[in-house]
Amino acid sequence: MNLNIDLIVNNINYIGAMILFVIGLYTVLTHPNLIKKVIGLNIMETAIFLFFVSIGYVQGAVAPIVNPETGEQMFVNPLPSAMILTGIVVAISITAFALSLIVKIHAAYGTIELDEIMKIRSVELDD
């Protein structure tokens, strides 16, 4: 069975990015700990950065710095990398904001486990 090993090897970046994306999504949705949810979110974002940068990659090409001495050369596409810089900044600000909210939640409830917070809230509702 020659299920094109080459196809998998050549696209390993994309496959890896998708696997990471799903791992991150699973963590965000299922983990009760808020900090781990934020970590999951960061994994999702990293997956996309990997995906985006892979789009711009060209086999055997160099960074796009024009050097007149070497003559004609292949360059990788620098645009995705530049966009990912913006993406990283955005990801950091989301993370920082989420962490500061978590600090406030810890101050209000005394825990950052979602199931315990739900218990506290249901007790408050009954009163």
Partner: peptide, 23 residues
């Protein structure tokens, strides 16, 4: 107290949303 939890939920869902859009 409840506002903080609501905004946490909104932030996480919103972040998943914008990450998905970027993909």
């Amino acid at each position: 107290k409840d506002t903080l939890m609501a905004s946490m939920k909104y932030l996480l869902m919103g972040a998943i949303g914008s990450v998905t859009v970027l993909m």
